[in-house]
Each structure stands twice: as structure tokens, then as C-alpha cells.
């Protein structure tokens, strides 16, 4: 089934009215992922944007058509591991799924996620990485790109400041746990995302981890209608490459042989607006470094398949 057929025909598992910002590509990602996973799923939404906008529900009503709950910020993976154990004990099966922001994944939730990865608990973990704590007004996270303005890495009138450190290469860190499936994805490449969720569903032992890069309109300063196009530029400039890894076998799924200049991407984003050419070059150097590394470890010396 093509991604379009699937998305046109499947039921939306999320409440039709959730209070995500106008144009939010995380809302798109969540609806897409859950259509692919279908009704036989148990969904964890830790504190973060998607919890805040009502996916877990409001008062005595739900925000989803599947069982959904709030884990704590830092225990999403372990709560899901517990659900899996309970299902196993009762001889039942369901997709046990996390949809968690980068704060709940690369920062506070990392220990629990790393533990699950090492133990081989069978869960699907999807991280929507918008580079910071957006639900509380955009504080920096360890995923935030170097130079970014955030509310905790402010920028002076003279343009000095922003985050002082590079963000972690988190999907690579997860791949180094030797888990059955790790992928990166983008809301600008929906058919690619659909296929990767389907791959994750096929994993019968261990963790399937998908890291989705979601530019945040409100926090980063992006116009609503550019929600998808900016996300696409992150891929086309090699800033966020799309790949998958089965154990340590890597494959670039959207090769970028001729990248666009990084400025095409950063110039559309307000949080980078104070960065001069030198600081942009620094971001570009790291992106190129990471892409070369990925090519080197990918099948066929670059995965240009």
C-alpha cells in the first residue's frame, strides 16, 4: 500500500482537535505515526508539547482513540518496558509506543531509554526532536544546535550568545546500543517516515527507535506555512540526514549528494538570525563531519542506493 493510500484510508487515532500550534509538524508526525501503527497500540506521551496540547486528554476525557497515558518526563521507556512485560505475562500483544520530545529522550529520559535498549525490551520509541523544551517556552536541551537562541541561552543586542555547545548526535548514540532498528525521519518526507514506522513494527525482539527532526515554528521563529519546507531544508543541507541502522548496518535512505548551502536553511529560522558567517560555518563543518561519518559506516560506502 502506498503511503498516500494508507494515510487516506486509515483512521486517525488522535483527537481531531488538539491544541498544537498552527502548522505544527509534530502534530502531523504524531497523526501519521499513529495511523500506521493502528488501533492495537498503547501510546505513551511524556510531558512535552504533545502532552500539553491534550493528546492524553483533558479531565475525564481522552485525546486519543488508543490507550494513552502520561509517563513521567524521565521514565517513558521503562514504563513501556513494564507494559510489555505485563502483556507478555498475559499472553497478549500490542504495539507499545512512545512519542516523546527530545527533553524526555536525550536528557531526562536517556537512562531509562538506554536501559531498555541494552535489555532488549520490545518497544517502539519515537522521539520528536524540536531541539528544546518547547512546551515551557523553549529552554535549551542537549539536542539544541550550537548558536541557537533559546530562553536559557539568550542573545545580547550585539548578537552575542546563544547555545555554546553542539547538540548530541542522539540517533547515532542509540544506534551504538546495537539495537534491531534505529532510524531518523523528517515530517517533510512522509512516505519515508511511513516506511520506517512499518519497519519498526516488524521488530520482534528489542528496541525500535525513530528520531524525527521537527523544526518548531513558535520556538525557532518559522512561519507556519514553512513548517514542512524548513524541515525539508534540514535534510537537503545535510544538517539532518535521513538513514536507518539495523544493529550496526547503516543505510542512508535519502542521500544528499549535492547539498544546498546551509544558509538556505538557517536563514529561514529566527533562532539563528544573530549568527555571522563564522558561526554558521561551524555548524556546517559539524554537519559535513557527521554526514561523512555516516557515509563511511553505511552500506556500499555511502549508501547511495
Amino acid at each position: 500500500m502506498s503511503a498516500l493510500d494508507l494515510l487516506a484510508e486509515r483512521e486517525d487515532m488522535i483527537s481531531p482537535g488538539i491544541s498544537a500550534c498552527v502548522g505544527c509538524n509534530v502534530e502531523l508526525t504524531l497523526r501519521t505515526v499513529m495511523k500506521v501503527l493502528g488501533p492495537n497500540s498503547i501510546l505513551a506521551i511524556p510531558p512535552g508539547c504533545m502532552g500539553g496540547v491534550g493528546v492524553v486528554g483533558w479531565n475525564k476525557q481522552s485525546g486519543a482513540k488508543v490507550p494513552v497515558f502520561f509517563p513521567l518526563l524521565d521514565n517513558t521507556a521503562s514504563m513501556l518496558a513494564g507494559i510489555r512485560l505485563a502483556l507478555d505475562a498475559k499472553g497478549r500483544d500490542a504495539h507499545v509506543v512512545a512519542f516523546a520530545g527530545d527533553g524526555a529522550t536525550v536528557d531526562a529520559g536517556f537512562q531509562a531509554l538506554s536501559g531498555v535498549a541494552e535489555r532488549g525490551d520490545r518497544i517502539i520509541y519515537i522521539c520528536y526532536d524540536n531541539e528544546g523544551y518547547m512546551n515551557t517556552g523553549y529552554q535549551r536541551s542537549s539536542s539544541t544546535s550550537k548558536g541557537s537562541w533559546t530562553s536559557t541561552t539568550p542573545v545580547s543586542k550585539e548578537g552575542q550568545g546563544g547555545k555554546r555547545q553542539h547538540g548530541k548526535d542522539f540517533p547515532m548514540i542509540m544506534a551504538m546500543h546495537d539495537v534491531p532498528y534505529v532510524a531518523t525521519a523528517s515530517p517533510a518526507y512522509i512516505p519515508d517516515l511511513v516506511r520506517k514506522v512499518e519497519e519498526a513494527m516488524k521488530v520482534k525482539e528489542g528496541l525500535a527507535y525513530i528520531h524525527v527532526y521537527n523544526p518548531c515554528l513558535t520556538g525557532w521563529g518559522i512561519r507556519a506555512e514553512e513548517s514542512i519546507s524548513v524541515a525539508r531544508l534540514a535534510v537537503k543541507t545535510r544538517f539532518f540526514p535521513l538513514y536507518e541502522a539495523r544493529n550496526r548496518k547503516f543505510k542512508i535512505t535519502v542521500p544528499v549528494p549535492n547539498p544546498l548551502p546551509l544558509e538556505d536553511y538557517t536563514s529561514r529560522i529566527k533562532k539563528f538570525s544573530h549568527l555571522g558567517p563564522e558561526r554558521i560555518a561551524e555548524l556546517k563543518d559539524l554537519a559535513e563531519e557527521r554526514y561523512r561519518f555516516l557515509e563511511a559506516v553505511s552500506a556500499g560506502g555511502g549508501g547511495r542506493a
Partner: peptide, 17 residues
Amino acid sequence: KDYVCPVGEGIYAANTG
């Protein structure tokens, strides 16, 4: 609804239209 603990049933939809 008389729930023992915080539970939600049925769909809440914000009128985002």
C-alpha cells in the same frame, strides 16, 4: 463519572476550527 483515579474515556476535541 466516578473514577477511582485520573482516567479519561471518550474523545475530547478542542474546537480548533
